[in-house]
């Protein structure tokens, strides 16, 4: 432990602190992002690298991989989404409970990538709203962490009143 600031000293000494409700809520949310990896293609390999011991995204507070959308806060779309897969992705997104965030992992999820043809959806934002886009084919794990930190900043700023905010 390094130096504690005044508030932390108060908190650790059994004292009490005051803060804004939105801030503490955002702080709590951003370090416990449970994610649902929607892996279809190549980017899944880099997701595996990012998840495992070598890069280890648990350091950023997203250790829990949940394979049920109902327990997940964050949908991680890794890989190409084809028109055949599109209804599945939409269903998974709809099954997730609010608040929820979507990350488009890799060029195919962002824009269809190099597959500009009859079968591939040109970007998952044609199906569901996206919060963070990660470029790269496939992105390196470091790029993913960069995106994760950006998403955490966004989560921190979002207040408790998400319910009344219009999400399309």
């Amino acid at each position: 432990m390094g130096k504690l600031n005044k508030t932390e000293k108060l908190a650790t000494n059994g004292g009490w602190i005051t803060t804004k409700f939105n801030e503490v809520l955002g702080w709590g949310r951003k370090y416990s992002l449970w994610h649902y990896p929607f892996i279809t293609a190549c980017c899944g390999m880099e997701y595996m690298s990012a998840a495992c011991a070598h890069y280890d995204f648990d350091r950023f507070g997203m250790g829990w991989t949940r394979f049920t959308p109902r327990q997940a806060d964050m949908l991680l779309v890794c890989g190409t989404i084809t028109h055949k897969e599109a209804p599945v992705l939409k269903t998974v997104y709809d099954q997730m409970t609010e608040p929820k965030w979507v990350v488009a992992f890799g060029a195919c999820a962002v824009s269809g990538g190099i597959y500009d043809n009859y079968a591939v959806v040109q970007g998952i934002d044609r199906i569901i709203p996206v919060d963070v886009y990660i470029p790269g084919c496939p992105p390196r794990p470091e790029t993913f962490f960069d995106a994760l930190i950006k998403l955490q900043e966004k989560v921190q700023k979002e207040g408790h009143d998400w319910r009344w905010k219009k999400r399309t």
């Binding site: 890989g79 084809t82 599945v88 190099i114 043809n117 009859y118 591939v120």
Partner: peptide, 11 residues
């Protein structure tokens, strides 16, 4: 199957 049919051959 075919959930990842990306039209590779045609492309």
């Amino acid at each position: 199957i075919g959930y990842l049919h990306r039209g590779l051959e045609k492309t």
